[in-house]
Write a protein that binds this DNA or RNA. Structure first.
Lengths: 351, 351
DNA sequence: CTGAAAGCGCTTACAG
DNA sequence: CTGAAAGCGCTTACAG
C-alpha cells in the first residue's frame, strides 16, 4: 500500500475558495516540508536565507494566503481584534474603528465590533463570552468602558490581551493609551482667560467618568492658577446630552452677573447652550462665548461654528491596534497623545 | 498496544481557554459519539428526541460553546459577517452596525467591519481579499457600495453571499433590502405643498447615486402631480457636504422670486442652508422653511430643529444580517421599509 | 537549519 | 437514528 497521506499528496485537492492554494501546495512547489513554509509565514529566523526567499517568491506568485481559521485553530487564538465600547458618539466610534483598521490592514487581522451597555450588570459576561468564544487575539477598550476595572480584571483572568484608551494612565504603559484630556481643558481655560473673560461657566458631565473629572479639574485648576476661582454656582453637572446642555445653560445664564463664556465638556451640550442662548436672545459670540470638547462634526456645522478641543481619535485607535498585534518582544512606544483647541467663531472678548 | 486516539480519550486534554470544554467532553459525558453531538449543534433532525435533549442539557450545564474556528475550518466557511461601506455618515454606520448585531447576537456569528473607498479603483480587490481570506459567511452591502454592480459581480464570482441595501430593488428579493427613499421624498413634497409653498428649491446630491436620483425624482414628480413644476433653476446639485449646502443655498436664495422653502437630500446640506440663511439675515422658519433627509443627530440639535426624513436604519441592518445567517431553506420575507418625515420646527406656511 | 508525526476541534462522506 | 474514519489547513513538540 502506497503511503498517501494528505501531507505528501496535496496535488489532488481542489483549489480552495481562498484562491491561493494551501500550505501544502507551496511546500510541494518549493520542494520543502510544510513546516518550513510555516516557519516562513511565521517569520521564524530558523530558515536559510535562500530557502526563505524562494518560498516568499512562490507565495507571492501563487497568491497564497494562510487560512486564518486553520492557523487560529492550531494557535488556539484567532486573528481577530475586538473593539469594545459604550459610547454614544458615533463619529468617535467610526474614527476609532478606522484608526484600528489603519494598523490592521495587511496584517491578516480583522476588526470585530462589540458595542455594549455598561449600565447593564451582565455586560461583562457578554464581553467574556465574546472574547472566549472567538478566542480573540486582543481587545481595544474605548472610553468609557476602558475605565471599568472589573472589566479589565475579567480580561486578565481569562488571559486576553487588551489595550486601554483613557484620559489618564490606568495601567502599565504596554496596555495603555493615555489621552491627556486635562491638557485640552487647560488650553481652553488659558484661551478664555486671555480673551478677558472673568465670569465663566462650566458644564461638566457625570462625575463618575474619569475623563469628566480630568477635564473639569484641569479647567478649574488652570483658571485658578491665573487667579480666577470659579464659584460653585458656576459649575453645573450635565449628562453629555443636548437637552442637559440646554437646561444647564439656562441655569448658568440666569446668574448675576451673567457668565460671558461657557465651557461644556462635550459638543452636544455646547449645541444645547446655543439653543438656550438664542432663545434668550443672546448672540454668540458677541454676548456669550462658547467652547466645546470633542470637535465632533457638529462643531463645524453650528452657526457660528464652535471652537472645540480635538483629540486625535483615529491615531488613538491605530496605536491601540498596533499595540495588540505587536510581537511580545517589540515594546512599542506610544507617542504622546496631545489634544488641542480648534479655534473657530464662537468666542470673542467680552464687551 | 491500546488504541488511544484523541477521539476515544479526550479526558486528558486540559481545559481550553474557551472554558466549556470540547465536543469530545460532551460526547464522553453523554456517552455518544462526537458526531451525534455535532448533529445536535447543527440542528440535524437525525437525532432521537431523547438523545438530543440529554445532550442539550449537558451543553448548557457545562457551558460548552463550539469553537468557531474549528467549525469554520471544517465547513470551509467562517462565522463572520462582513459589513462593507463607503459612507461618510457616522451615525448611519453605527446604527447599521448595531442593527446587524441585533440579529447576530447569540447566533455565534460576529460582525467584522470593512470601510472602503469606492472611488479608488482597487477597492473591489480589497473586498475580494477580505472576503476570501476570512472566508466570510456573507457580507452586508451598505449604500452606496451596494449600488456598484461590479462589486456584486465579483461577489457572485467568488461565491460569497451578500445582502444589498439600496433605495430600490436591484437584485432578487432574497438578497435585497429596498428602502424606498422615493416615498420619503414624496412625503416632503406633499407636506411643503400643503403648507402653501409655491416657490421651492431642491438641493440634490451627486446624480451618480441611485438614492439621489430616487429622492429627487420622487420629490419633483409628487410636486408635479400637485400642479407644481419646479423650474430648472430651482434644482441644484450639491455634494452632500455642509459646504456644498451653503453654496447651493446661496444660489437658490439669490433667485427672484426667492424660494420660501428648500428641501435638501441630506441633513448636512440642510445645516449649510441654515448657515447661508442666517448670514443673509433670513429667519427660519418665518422666511424660509427647510427640510432635510436622514434625520441625523444633527437635525434635532440645530436651532430651530430640523424636519427631516427618517429611515429605520437599525432595522435595515438587522434584516440584512438575519437574511445572511438564515438557513438556505428559510425564505425570509423582509417587511417593507418605510421612511417617514419627522416634523420639527423648521417649516411653516409662507407669509 | 529542516522534517515526520501528532494534534487543534470540528465536519463530511460513508457505513450500518 | 448512530458511529468510526479521514480530513479541513495549519502549528507545536520532538527529533535530527
Amino acid at each position: 500500500m502506497t503511503r498517501r497521506s494528505r501531507d505528501v499528496n496535496p496535488s489532488d485537492s481542489p483549489p480552495t475558495m481562498n484562491g491561493g492554494g494551501t500550505i501544502n501546495d507551496i511546500a510541494r512547489l518549493a520542494g520543502v516540508s510544510k513546516k518550513t513554509v510555516s516557519r516562513v509565514i511565521n517569520r521564524s529566523p530558523l530558515v536559510q536565507q535562500e530557502t526563505r526567499e524562494k518560498i516568499e517568491a512562490l507565495i507571492r506568485e501563487v497568491g497564497y494566503v494562510p487560512d486564518p481559521m486553520a492557523r487560529g485553530l492550531a494557535f488556539r487564538k484567532s486573528f481577530l481584534i475586538g473593539m469594545v465600547y459604550d459610547n454614544p458618539n458615533a463619529q468617535y466610534i467610526v474614527n476609532m474603528q478606522e484608526g484600528a483598521l489603519d494598523s490592521l490592514r495587511g496584517s491578516g487581522f480583522e476588526l470585530v465590533v462589540h458595542p455594549c451597555d455598561s449600565k447593564s450588570d451582565d455586560y461583562i459576561d457578554g464581553v467574556r463570552h465574546f472574547v472566549l468564544q472567538q478566542r480573540l487575539h486582543g481587545v481595544i477598550l474605548v472610553p468609557r468602558v476602558s475605565e471599568d476595572s472589573a472589566l479589565v480584571e475579567m480580561l486578565q483572568q481569562v488571559g486576553c490581551r487588551y489595550a486601554r484608551i483613557a484620559a489618564v494612565s490606568l495601567d502599565e504603559p504596554a496596555r495603555m493609551i493615555a489621552t491627556n484630556d486635562r491638557q485640552g481643558a487647560v488650553e481652553v481655560a488659558n484661551y478664555l482667560e486671555s480673551l478677558g473673560h472673568r465670569h465663566i461657566g462650566l458644564i461638566t458631565g457625570p462625575q463618575r467618568y474619569l475623563s469628566t473629572r480630568e477635564r473639569g479639574a484641569g479647567f478649574l485648576q488652570a483658571l485658578a492658577k491665573r487667579g480666577l476661582e470659579l464659584p460653585a454656582t458656576h459649575v453645573v453637572e450635565g449628562g453629555y446630552t443636548f437637552e442637559s446642555g440646554v437646561a444647564c445653560a439656562e441655569k448658568l445664564l440666569a446668574l448675576e452677573p451673567r457668565p460671558t463664556a461657557i465651557f461644556t465638556l462635550n459638543d452636544e451640550m455646547a449645541a444645547g447652550v446655543y439653543k438656550a442662548a438664542f432663545r434668550m436672545g443672546l448672540s454668540i459670540p458677541e454676548q456669550l462665548s462658547v467652547v466645546g470638547f470633542d470637535d465632533s462634526p457638529l462643531a463645524a456645522r453650528l452657526w457660528p461654528s464652535l471652537s472645540s478641543v480635538r483629540l486625535p481619535i483615529r491615531d488613538m485607535g491605530s496605536f491601540a491596534a498596533a499595540m495588540l498585534i505587536a510581537a511580545d518582544g517589540e515594546a512599542r512606544s506610544v507617542p504622546l497623545i496631545a489634544p488641542h483647541l480648534v479655534v473657530r467663531e464662537s468666542c470673542q472678548s467680552p464687551v
